[in-house]
């Protein structure tokens, strides 16, 4: 309980997991961004960001709407490539390899850096097919039995197995919102990525479903590096090892979650977490 409640906007829920998270030692750099700038047409959305992402950490991006946190997240597995007018400058490496290098295969990159979106977006196919699609695409399972194993273990990791094991052939779109989001997480996990990006994964969910997904993130951080964007500061405080504060396209401050919420170095961070703006 070493986080004083005072600077938090509402702090009572946030404190519990903070301590345990800090205790994990994370020092191996998994991804690194150097002077990353993003432009939409002529408008600059990101003004040169430098950031290290450590292996097996949970890193949260917070900041007011339109500050560029989602845009930056989507640079990490090149989802921005799908937007025609979007242009990325600078250098991002994964395990010391430039992911924007001309010979870099974006398909392989996205198999290594998976992404979960804000709104649950299962394929309009069966639950089984939703999970099996990725492994089949990448040839990860040669036989049906292997694929069955991957489906089961992915659903187990997403904590969904018990709820859906009897209806794997039913449409994934028929699940509840929270279940759909966990299905999407299971779908990402099935490809066995190193890093999972989450773009406000709980913003479309009710509090109970949110709690389940947060617990899931906690469990997944044992074996994955997780980078998440959140609008919800308590959520960052609950699940993240480190937190990065974005403002107007700048990365203002990044530090351990404790440090950001108790002793922010920048005035803007302080103003934001105390609710002056945002």
């Amino acid at each position: 309980m070493n986080i004083p409640a005072q600077p938090m906007a509402t702090s009572s829920v946030s404190v519990g997991s903070g301590e345990s998270r800090v205790s994990k030692a994370k020092d191996k750099v998994k991804m690194n961004a150097q002077d990353v700038k993003v432009f939409y047409g002529d408008a600059q959305a990101i003004n040169g960001i430098d950031l290290d992402i450590y292996e097996n950490e949970v890193l949260a991006f917070i900041g007011p709407s339109g500050c560029g946190k989602s845009t930056f997240l989507r640079c990490l597995n090149r989802m921005n490539d799908t937007i025609d007018i979007c242009r990325v400058e600078g250098k991002i490496t994964l395990d010391q390899n430039d992911i924007y290098a001309p010979d870099r295969d974006v398909v392989l990159l996205r198999a290594q850096v998976g992404i979960v979106f804000q709104k649950p977006n299962p394929f309009p196919k069966s639950i089984y097919e939703n999970i099996a699609y990725g492994p089949r695409l990448h040839g990860l399972a040669r036989r049906k039995a292997e694929l069955d194993d991957i489906v089961e273990s992915s659903l187990r990791r997403a904590g969904l197995w018990e709820e859906v094991k009897d209806r794997l052939d039913q449409p994934g779109t028929g699940l509840s919102g929270g279940q759909q989001q966990r299905l999407c997480i299971a779908r990402t996990v099935a490809v066995s990525p190193d890093i999972i990006l989450m773009d406000e994964p709980c913003s479309a969910l009710d509090p109970i479903a949110t709690a389940k997904v947060e617990q899931l993130i906690d469990e997944l951080s044992e074996s994955y590096t997780i980078v998440m964007v959140t609008h919800n500061m308590q959520q960052a405080a609950r699940v993240a090892d480190r937190t990065a504060f974005f403002h107007m396209g700048d990365l203002v401050e990044v530090d351990t979650t404790d440090q950001i919420f108790t002793n922010p170095q920048d005035q803007r961070t302080h103003d934001y977490i105390t609710g002056r703006f945002g």
Partner: peptide
Amino acid sequence: IPPSIRQAALGIGASRVQTVFHH
């Protein structure tokens, strides 16, 4: 077709052609 379907497929690592033809 909602763009979320395309993003879902691309996010798993499907190529653009695969995204179009599978989903």
